[in-house]
Design a binder for these strands. Structure first.
Lengths: 179, 179
DNA sequence: AAATGCATGTAACGCGTTACATGATTTT
DNA sequence: AAAATCATGTAACGCGTTACATGCATTT
């Protein structure tokens, strides 16, 4: 099965949310290691509800087509727990930057270096964001049982970004060097 | 357009090959940053030939359904060069391991640590493979104008693997620590 | 009342994998 | 001659994105 329903289930295990909230949360907090689109989220919510893994939070406003908030059910928590225990399946790698450098011999002069410089800037910004996020988590989530896990995840992003920055410097001097 | 045809074009720019060769090359040498399946490669070859970006290398054996080797054309080289100059588009991130750790609070005890240990082992092996590959490249491709680019790519894999190993150790002690 | 943002939902499409069918070539 | 491996090719399927349609709520 797709991992999308489990991502949704996982977010609902933290707190009840609407499809829109789920999207926003992924976009704002998880975007450095995960992504989902509406086209995935809403159908997933539908299927999860049909399977009784989530349930609508009864909202007083009976308005049709209003905001629909869901919570995870006990059954949903069990399913989530079982999924969390399974070894993650790595997705097949597809790094377009490395592919372009691999064929770099045929690239116009300077193209590879330009790509690497762009990467470096992105990762620099990401690193700053994640550092800020670390401070924020410590401040705002103090005492939250999720905190330790979230810090580990952020540190993964941080160490990845820093490794990429260091590699960029190496790569740039290797590209510049007329060896 | 998909990047598959450019990956194919790029490999053919190194030397003429069959679809089977392309698959093997990707599997053996590029698998740490790229992947393609037959279901992508053969249709891509067909389209590239139709567009005159590659041409069959005339093989004497007129046998139907034999080995079909292709070479890149001048037009193909131009197209490849243009693609190489464009900024690579990053694929949306989907790291299932980090997702599972993010929801780690709901995981059975020890599950996250087990995932991280598995990652560590994989990356340790990858690091060893890439180190071997570096030596091999220096030895066997000495003088090859591709060498510098290939070494940069391998060093990206290596620094990524090493960063992941270091992060694993951090993560494991954070997971173990009863903070 | 118009514009903007919040919110839900789906249809269409493309990419990529998996699994299978087929046949040629080499090894045992 | 059988088995293994090299090699080509496609059909079916699933996942995920993009783009659009719709309408509620709030601000200007």
């Amino acid at each position: 099965m797709s991992t999308t329903p489990f991502a949704v289930l996982g977010l609902l295990s933290i707190e009840p949310m609407s499809g829109y909230d789920i999207r926003r949360e992924i976009e704002e907090s998880l975007s450095f290691f995960w992504s989902e689109s509406y086209g995935q989220i809403y159908p997933a919510l539908k299927r999860l509800e049909a399977a009784r893994l989530i349930a609508p939070v009864t909202q007083a406003r009976s308005g049709i087509r209003g905001r629909r908030v869901f919570r995870i059910t006990a059954l949903g928590e069990a399913k989530l727990r079982a999924w969390l225990a399974e070894p993650p399946v790595p997705q097949p790698p597809r790094n377009e930057l490395l592919l372009k450098i691999f064929f770099g011999r045929h690239a116009p002069p300077g193209a590879c270096a330009a790509h690497v410089r762009r990467l470096r800037i992105q990762q620099q910004q990401l690193s700053a964001t994640l550092t800020r996020m670390t401070r924020q988590l410590h401040a705002e989530r103090h005492g939250d049982p999720n905190l330790r896990y979230w810090l580990i995840v952020v540190s993964a992003g941080l160490s990845r970004a820093d490794a990429l920055i260091q590699w960029s410097d190496q790569a740039l001097s290797a590209l510049a060097g007329g060896s």
